[in-house]
Design a protein around this nucleic acid. Sequence first.
DNA 1: GACGGATATATCGCGTGCCGATATATTGTC
DNA 2: GACAATATATCGGCACGCGATATATCCGTC
Lengths: 120, 120
Amino acid sequence: MLTGNESAELVVLSLLAEGESYGYQLTKDAAGRSEGHLRLTPGVLYPLLRQLENEGLITSSWDAVRAEDSDEGAEGRKRKWYRLSPKGKRRLGQRVAAYESLRKVIDAFVGVRPREEGSR
Amino acid sequence: MLTGNESAELVVLSLLAEGESYGYQLTKDAAGRSEGHLRLTPGVLYPLLRQLENEGLITSSWDAVRAEDSDEGAEGRKRKWYRLSPKGKRRLGQRVAAYESLRKVIDAFVGVRPREEGSR
DNA sequence: GACGGATATATCGCGTGCCGATATATTGTC
DNA sequence: GACAATATATCGGCACGCGATATATCCGTC
């Protein structure tokens, strides 16, 4: 549930606002932080990251995860690190504002429930 | 924005929890209550009402809006009134709970923002 | 040294469902 | 008699979410 792109974007930007990270890590963080309710699947995450980068909201770079005992060209495993750009920070602010506004709207309805328990 | 069926359902059930209503009215109420942010368009509303009725969450009946000076079979304008069924009340409770849980999940990310304003 | 599972990134395409466009009828008003 | 508001309803194209799938490295262990 809630793997809709809108909320996914909010979540990814939020996580990156706490510090740089990479895809797989984001997946784990999302699941952990939400007690498993939020499953950021590859099919959702990677297209989203690409899109965010295209929009200039995040930047990325490849870094060898271990350059130990490498002989020469052997680079071994690499990870693609993502970090939030200034533009991304701004966007996050907007998204958070939008979320809070949406929440206010929904509350305007949900909050008005007439009776918590039917009296009969 | 937010014309997604999930939230639309929540809103319609909430409005009907306050008393019976009809389609056009629901449209107006939704817009009014949310200061225009929530546009419950016909394309969204009527399919939704139909679906809700099929699921037994709401019931409906046609009522002539004015039976004045009618001659005989002339029924004039009619309105389709909807009201929440007991099952619908239960569903509303579930939806509200789901919404609140979702909100908690999002807050788990959004709330942790490191810095409100970048220090530079 | 090979097998399996975890780590890690990435793409593709199809099924679904959103909602804009559209249709129809009545009422009010100028 | 024309136009706007009221009122309900359907339809289908196009968008896109995301499951399935592919690829590669790393590590433990037998």
